[in-house]
Design a protein around this nucleic acid. Structure first.
Lengths: 145, 145
DNA sequence: TTTTAACTCTACTAATTTGATGGACAATAT
DNA sequence: ATATTGTCCATCAAATTAGTAGAGTTAAAA
């Protein structure tokens, strides 16, 4: 499951991507516009900034803006920052691999093998979806399988 | 994330699928063999039985067996019983749709659209993986995307 | 028919995660 | 100076997760 945090983050990033290049958007505005609790959103934006996805400006008329072009930021990056690895199970993760405590033989584990497929599919979709594409309402041309 | 419960359930079902047709497997044996807390496993098996995936026999020499051929039981069925819908977000779910409270316009929401793709990919993989296939170590022929 | 070994069911609990909230502090434009 | 906005830290209530405990029920076997 995607957390609220990740969902809010995606919406906030899309809002920032809609802004003219260089224009700042304030936390309060995003919060109002997208029905996100304001203080909660601030934590999220702080996270995104610390990970280098957005820049912030303090003080009066401050706000946030994308740190990179919307073509260079993907859903995958955002979701991983908020919720961690995409894999349904740590032993199937590339970015956050951890062994299953209870697993007898990882090499032949059908659960792991299948969850790796799920991870790969999710990664393909999310790492392939940029903010720019999402804004244009880009659907996937080639259906998944 | 897949819960421990779902992971244990998948392993238990695979164990049952490995049994000769009609043979019973006891909770204690599965627990030992797969490093699953015994009482916890019993809850899981109870769930699976109530959902009609396995049968149980009480009393001495009791145990569990698949209620259907291993070709007719999929990872998708098992995961949904344990963890609910596959979709990362309720508004993208087929089996458990629920509107996003904070969503302004569901029709054009890029988050929803993308998470629906993720759901569809996961469903394709998990609903396509039967216990029988998993036992044979069947990998996916056509890669996802 | 008693015993034993299995599943069934309900209740409980400890730890963690999630989804926030509040307030002091720091920076910046006016 | 002052108003405004981001930063940071602490706290918190509710939900979820992962597991435990124990009494009850069933059925085979001694």
């Amino acid at each position: 499951m995607l957390s609220q945090k990740a969902k809010y983050a995606l919406k906030a990033m899309l809002a920032l991507a809609a802004e003219k290049d260089g224009d700042l958007l304030q936390a309060g505005d995003i919060a109002t516009k997208h029905n996100v609790p304001r203080k909660f959103l601030e934590l999220i934006l702080l996270d995104l900034r610390k990970q280098g996805l957005i820049n912030s400006q303090r003080g009066k008329n401050g706000g946030y803006a994308l740190a990179k072009p919307a073509e260079a930021i993907t859903f995958g990056q955002i979701v991983r920052i908020m919720d961690g690895p995409l894999a349904p199970i740590p032993c199937a993760s590339l970015t956050g691999y951890r062994r299953c405590e209870d697993c007898r033989d990882e090499k032949t584990c059908a659960v792991r093998r299948t969850m790796r497929e799920v991870r790969d599919a999710a990664a393909t979709i999310l790492d392939g979806m940029t903010l720019a594409q999402a804004r244009q309402g880009a659907g996937r041309k080639t259906p998944v399988l």
